[in-house]
Design a protein around this nucleic acid. Sequence first.
DNA 1: AAATTCTCCTGAAGGC
DNA 2: TGCCTTCAGGAGAATT
Length: 270
Amino acid sequence: MPELPEVDVTRQGIAPYVTGRALHGAIVRDRRLRWPVPHELGASLAGRVVRAVRRRGKYLLFDCDDGHLIVHLGMSGSLRLLPRDVPPGKHDHVDLVFADRVLRLHDPRRFGAVLWTQQPLEAHPLIRHLGVEPLSRSFNGARLHALTQGLRTSIKNVLMDARRIVGVGNIYASESLFLAGINPRTPARRLSHARCARLVVAIKHTLRTAIRAGGSSLRDFVHSDGAPGHFQLRARVYGRAGEACRRCEGTVRRIVQGQRATFYCPRCQR
DNA sequence: AAATTCTCCTGAAGGC
DNA sequence: TGCCTTCAGGAGAATT
């Protein structure tokens, strides 16, 4: 499931090929993604040069001269760069066509999105409300502390709220809270400045480690016909309910917060 | 405003 | 083997 690291590794993988190249169009085999893929996508993209590929939260942004292609991988999406003559398989819904390759979106669950906009991105409804980038300089202890002020909801839910902090998905939220030794149920407003600072360090470390792990498996991205990223990241708590904590004598617990599974060690995380 | 619930979808896993 | 049911999750939309 693509979280920030997977999206960023994808971006790194495709950027060397895509940057500076002209799109020839798009092939849409199934428009039914999270929002319908525009009928005129191919016509909108034809002839446009991709100047840069950026990431904002979990959105991939292809900057063209007078517009932006917005791609989201949803829950199960992946992008692969393939020779143009590779036949599409099941769930290969959209191809972004370049001169000698296609960028192919594979997304079984169809929670992803492919949109074209000529609006300034800072005004776009999907981008406008996004919160702070967790790997940015401005995401520090003071910023997180300010962000949690007055919030009665749990810190786990705050980490998952893209209007406040982007990109930290369910897995990395649990992992980061474990690293920081913070109980995921702690009301956000109860976190001290020191604990916020500790949590910020844990989040950055968790995300950077995952990006590094994914990046190393993607050296061959352009020629790969496998899904991107074999993240070697070994989960400390995620998915380990009932198993032994790796740090103490405790047992990892699973709870549900905001209809999402959370894993933590009650002994290590207070 | 903040918080919670609902919703989209398919594949995997578990039960019988 | 096969047919259920349940669960997983990103995040906008709807509701409380």
